[in-house]
């Protein structure tokens, strides 16, 4: 996917988001509430294979919930989610999660397992691989995120950035069709953000389909095929990142993007 490197060219070279008649992920009228509070009020979107969709929005806008509905870590009320044309509600949830990997904001590495064992747990217990094959595959993926030397370290012995890269390797090793990222860098010290974003960019370039909640605007501009602004449980605006950055249709989008950009410039200073 070389066309990713040129953001503007790509937007015109590729069909618009969700226009493929057979998208990998299709979300239709998704609704979810916690008690009286409506978190998602009808969300529609579609991702084709190799798309990278970045979702932004203020806290409480429903971004994390949206991701969790996709792999059913949260059960939703209304609407539906289709993976490869099949409703996720009709699928076995463990099978669904095998096909949809997830990377967490608070990383959640298994504290009692080494980096390598963190990756092999799912391979062995879910995919039923034998120890040797699982080890080989885990090492390959740790190498891919640049952590082969740390394979025998425990999570508490790794830096935040290293931990999150193990988290990505753990999700990646399951060979998922789709990867979900829930603010993967927001719990990290600023100087560690870059290494994680680097791995994510490489994945995007390699053609992985990704649904990413993040406020890293640099990553969004560089790697996203689509940018979605979510607020109060609804999609405010959705489109190619360059268009949203240069010419947003809604004032709210413009204001939110300006605040985000200021913030990251503050941090960079």
């Amino acid at each position: 996917m070389t066309d990713r490197d040129a953001g503007t060219a790509e937007a015109s070279a590729r069909p618009g988001p969700g226009t493929d008649p057979d998208p990998l992920l299709r979300i239709e009228g998704l609704r979810k509430s916690y008690g009286d509070e409506e978190v998602l009020r009808g969300v529609d979107m579609a991702l084709d294979r190799q798309d990278v969709e970045v979702i932004i929005g203020p806290s409480g806008s429903g971004k994390s919930t949206l991701l969790r509905c996709v792999n059913r870590l949260t059960e939703f009320r209304g609407g539906d989610v289709f993976l490869d044309g099949e409703s996720v509600l009709a699928m076995d949830e463990n099978d669904l999660r095998r096909r949809v990997g997830m990377v967490f904001q608070d990383i959640n590495l298994f504290a009692h397992l080494t980096a390598r064992e963190n990756v092999t747990l799912g391979l062995r217990r879910v995919l039923g691989m034998d120890r040797e094959a699982a080890d080989d595959r885990a090492m390959a993926h740790l190498k891919r995120v640049g952590l082969a030397p740390q394979s025998e370290s425990y999570p508490a012995e790794l830096s935040g950035g290293q931990k999150q890269r193990v988290g990505i390797a753990r999700a990646l090793a399951m060979d998922p069709d789709l990867l979900l990222f829930d603010e993967p860098t927001s719990a990290l010290d600023p100087e560690l953000v870059g290494e994680v974003l680097g791995v994510m960019s490489d994945l995007a370039d390699g053609g992985m389909t990704m649904l990413v909640v993040t406020h890293e605007m640099g990553f969004a501009r560089r790697a996203a095929t689509t940018l979605t602004f979510l607020d109060e449980g609804r999609i405010v605006e959705r489109g190619p990142p360059d268009r949203l950055f240069e010419a947003p249709e809604r004032d709210r989008t413009a204001e939110f993007l300006r605040r985000l950009t200021d913030l990251s410039e503050d941090r960079d200073r």
């Binding site: 870590l73 463990n94 095998r98 990997g101 608070d106 504290a111 747990l121 217990r125 753990r170 399951m174």
Partner: peptide
């Protein structure tokens, strides 16, 4: 044990019991 551990395990595809 942090609730995130359970969530991460489920996200890999393990059953609740697993």
């Amino acid at each position: 044990v942090d609730a995130g551990q359970m969530e991460a395990a489920r996200a890999v595809g393990l059953s609740k019991l697993g």
